[in-house]
């Protein structure tokens, strides 16, 4: 299924999404990756306030290239998500509802996703120039010293993602592969080499 969603997210707005759905997101979200996550969690551990509004927020795991004239942000594809596993459960507990990255995330994070009704989305790794076109504005709001790793508040229009882990914990990486291999096996038994249907 294809969906259009706006941020911030709520448990309600995410509950119908299923692994494999294509979603086009419009609204504000934050960019953060390794170094910024470490700082956010250090703040939480010290009982301090976060520089972002975490309730219902969506975080995009990205470290963009510098913008050229006329661009809001440079090339901006997803980075590998499992490196944020050490930090994301704490952010989910505080109200984070969406994460966008690529690659598998840990069991502990998936449990938190299910507990809070959040969703983990995948953007296409390696399609950074294409993805950049749906980013309309970008503003550094924290940790400017981190350069590409600074936290930016970005406004996106119809930002294309796919649901990887839905709010029930179902997993596209597992399901997609199983389905493909099952179909492949069926076709083999039927003696067909072409799998198009």
């Amino acid at each position: 299924m294809d969906y259009k969603l706006t941020t911030p997210f709520t448990r309600e707005s995410l509950k119908n999404l299923m692994q494999g759905d294509n979603v086009y997101i419009t609204g504000f979200m934050y960019t953060a990756r390794d170094a910024a996550h470490k700082r956010l969690v250090d703040l939480i551990d010290n009982g301090k306030e976060l520089p972002i509004d975490i309730k219902g927020a969506c975080i995009y795991y990205v470290g963009p290239t510098p913008a050229k004239d006329g661009q809001a942000l440079g090339s901006a594809g997803p980075t590998t998500s499992y490196r944020m596993d050490a930090y994301s459960p704490k952010l989910l507990d505080l109200g984070l509802m969406g994460m966008i990255g690529k690659g598998m995330i840990g069991e502990e994070v998936i449990e938190k996703i299910v507990e809070h009704g959040a969703v983990y989305f995948g953007a296409i790794g390696g399609a950074a120039a294409l993805i950049s076109k749906s980013i309309k504005s970008a503003e550094i709001i924290a940790y400017e010293d981190l350069g590409a790793e600074a936290i930016r508040k970005i406004y996106v229009e119809n930002f294309p993602v796919t649901v990887i882990i839905d709010s029930r914990g179902d997993n596209l990486y597992k399901r997609g592969r199983e389905e493909y291999l099952k179909r492949k096996m069926q076709r083999k038994e039927e003696g067909k080499s072409n799998m198009e249907d």
């Binding site: 440079g74 901006a76 296409i124 399609a127 120039a129 294409l130 076109k133 072409n194 799998m195």
Partner: peptide, 30 residues
């Protein structure tokens, strides 16, 4: 011939063409 694969390969090819024409990095991890 798997539809989902075709869509993604199309997008990756489109991304390379955009990077080429607009002279921007094809990936943010340069």
């Amino acid at each position: 011939d798997w539809k989902l694969s075709q869509d993604i390969l199309d997008k990756i090819i489109e991304n390379a063409r955009i990077a080429d024409t607009e002279q921007v990095p094809m990936c943010q991890d340069t």
